[in-house]
């Protein structure tokens, strides 16, 4: 009982404040480098935006299905036929670094 009550209180608290640690965590999730100063600024802004979003809690959505598509589209199928596409040379025009017909990036897997 006490536990349940505490968890409700805890939930409410984290709903309305997003601390810098959380900001840094989501920044890493979206692979965004972030400075301490930026994390501080975003933390304040996020809390007020998320507070505003919490307005949705007023709406009764019991038995309401989530929207999944808006064009009412059905599965679209087609024959799997080979067609000409962009050449490798053309594709690589925009690559920052390339070598022997491949996009070049630093080590992806650990090399230890």
């Amino acid at each position: 009982m006490v536990n349940g009550l505490l968890s409700i209180v805890f939930y409410e608290v984290i709903m309305s404040t997003i601390d810098t640690k959380t900001v840094k965590h989501v920044a890493f999730l979206v692979r965004l480098g972030i400075s301490d100063e930026e994390a501080q600024t975003f933390s304040g802004q996020f809390s007020s935006i998320i507070d505003y979003f919490n307005m949705l809690n007023e709406v009764d959505t019991e038995n309401v299905p989530p929207a999944s598509d808006i064009a009412n589209a059905e599965n679209v199928l087609r024959e799997d036929v080979v067609k000409p596409s962009m050449s490798r040379e053309e594709f690589l025009k925009n690559a920052p670094q390339s070598e022997r017909g491949y996009v070049k990036v630093p080590t992806v897997l650990g090399n230890e």
Binding site: L29, L32, G33, Q45
Partner: peptide, 20 residues
């Protein structure tokens, strides 16, 4: 590094809030 330098503040806000 690329995304830190390449994106403006509003883009950063939105993609972080989206991930959240």
């Amino acid at each position: 590094k690329t995304r830190h330098e390449g994106f403006g503040d509003e883009v950063k806000r939105r993609i972080m809030l989206g991930a959240y």
